[in-house]
Design a protein around this nucleic acid. Structure first.
Lengths: 222, 222
DNA sequence: GTCTATAATCCGATAGAC
DNA sequence: GTCTATCGGATTATAGAC
C-alpha cells in the first residue's frame, strides 16, 4: 500500500498486455486497480504520462532479456544469444514490443518523447557492442559497427514486426527457424562472389558521395 | 457526381493522410466530403469497411511505384530499382506505408482481413520475382528465392519503419544514403570469409532440423 | 488519497421524413 | 441519397466534499 503508484503501474502493464492500445482506458484501469478513475490522477499527470511509464517497463523487460545474453563466454556466442534474446522478447511480449516501437504513433504524437528516444538508443548501442566485439575477434568483417549494427537491428525488427502483425503466414515454430536462417544469410551475404567484389568497391567509395544505390551497383563492371 | 462513392473514398484517403488513424472519424470525413455523417453509410457499411478501401488505395499507389521499377532493362537494375521504389513510396507516403502494414493492429482486429493478406502477398511475390531473376542471371547466389526475398523485404521494411517512427536520428538525405548502404552490406555479407564457410555449412543442414541458431554457429569449428 | 458528481467532447450508427 | 434528430455509448479530465 505504501507504493500505490507502483501498484497502478503494474495494473496498467497488465491491462495493456491484455487489451492492447485500443482497449486501454483510464476507467478500465481504475476498475482493475480497485479505485475510481479520478484517483489515478493523484499519481500520474494524465494518460500519456502513464503509458510512458508502461513503455519504460517494456524497456526494462527487454533489458533483462538482453542482459542474459551477456553471460555467454565468447563474442560470437553473445552475438548469437543477443539475436535470440531479441526474438524471445518479441514473441513472449508482443505488446511490449509494439508499444516501445510505436508509442508516439499510437498516441498521435508528432515527436518521440526523449525518454523513449534515450532508451531506444540503449538498445541500439547494445547491438553495436555485440557487433564491435565480433569485429575485434575476427567473427565479423571490419566495418563501421554503427552501420552494421543498424542493418542487423533493422532486419531483426522488420522480420519480427511482419510476423507479429500476421503478415507472414507461418506458425511460430517455423518462424523461429526462419529467423535464424535469415540472420545467417545476411551474415554470409546474398550476392555471388563476382558481384560481391563490385559491392566492396561501392562501399569503399560510397561514404563520400553519390545517390542512393542499393545493389549490384553502378554500370562500371558488366 | 455519378460516383459519389469514389469521391468519398478520395476524401477518406486525404483525411487519413492528413490526420492519421487517430484523427480519422466518420464525422470529420462527412464534413470534408460536404455531406452529413449518415450519408456515408449509404456507400460504405461502416468505418472498418471504409478504411479497408483506403488500404486498398495504399496498395494501388505502392503498386504504381513498384511497376515503374520493371521498366529497367536488366535483372540487377530492376532489383535495384525495386528497392529504391519501395523506399520512395515509404518516404513520400508514410501514412499509406503504415496503414497497409498495421491495419489490423490499428483497428484492434485479431486477424488480418483476407483482402489485405492477398495484397501483401502480391508485394512479397514481387520481391521474390526480383530475387529469382537475379539468381538466374548470376547476380545473386542460388538459394531459395522465397527465403531470400523475405530477408530483403524484412530488412527494407524494418529500416523504413524505424526511420518513419523517428527512432533513427538522421535527416532524410542521410537516411537515403544509409538505406542503400545497408542493402549493399546485406548483399555482400557481414561475416569474415572464415566464418562465412561455417555459415554455408549451417545453411546446408538447417533445412531439416535443429533449434534456432542465428550466427556463427554450433561449437564445432573454433 | 479517495470519493461522488459532472463537465465537455467525441464517437459509430440508426430511424424516419423528404 | 441526403437530410434532421437522436440513441447509446465511450472517453479524458476536473471540482469539491470527506
Amino acid at each position: 500500500m505504501t507504493d500505490q503508484r507502483e501498484h497502478i503501474l503494474g495494473c496498467a502493464c497488465d491491462l495493456y498486455l491484455e487489451a492492447g492500445m485500443e482497449g486501454f482506458s483510464m476507467r478500465k484501469l481504475a476498475q482493475q486497480v480497485g479505485v475510481t478513475a479520478p484517483a489515478l490522477y493523484r499519481h500520474f499527470e494524465n494518460r500519456e504520462d502513464l503509458l510512458l511509464q508502461v513503455v519504460g517497463e517494456a524497456h526494462n523487460v527487454l533489458g533483462s532479456y538482453l542482459y542474459r545474453a551477456l553471460s555467454a563466454s565468447t563474442p560470437r556466442e553473445r552475438f548469437s544469444a543477443a539475436g535470440e534474446a531479441y526474438m524471445e522478447f518479441a514473441l513472449e511480449h508482443p505488446r511490449y514490443f509494439q508499444i516501445m516501437h510505436a508509442f508516439a504513433e499510437h498516441l498521435g504524437l508528432s515527436e518521440v518523447p526523449v525518454e523513449v528516444e534515450e532508451r531506444m538508443g540503449g538498445v541500439k548501442r547494445f547491438w553495436d557492442d555485440r557487433v564491435r566485439e565480433c569485429m575485434e575477434s575476427g567473427v565479423l568483417r571490419r566495418d563501421d559497427p554503427d552501420r552494421v549494427g543498424l542493418t542487423l537491428w533493422a532486419h531483426a525488427y522488420g522480420l519480427l514486426s511482419l510476423y507479429l502483425r500476421g503478415l507472414l503466414d507461418a506458425p511460430e515454430s517455423a518462424f523461429r527457424e526462419l529467423y535464424g536462417d535469415s540472420f545467417a544469410r545476411i551474415l554470409r551475404g546474398l550476392a555471388t562472389t563476382e558481384y560481391g567484389a563490385d559491392l566492396d568497391q561501392h562501399l569503399t567509395h560510397s561514404r563520400e558521395s553519390g545517390p542512393t544505390r542499393i545493389s549490384p551497383v553502378d554500370g562500371t563492371t558488366p
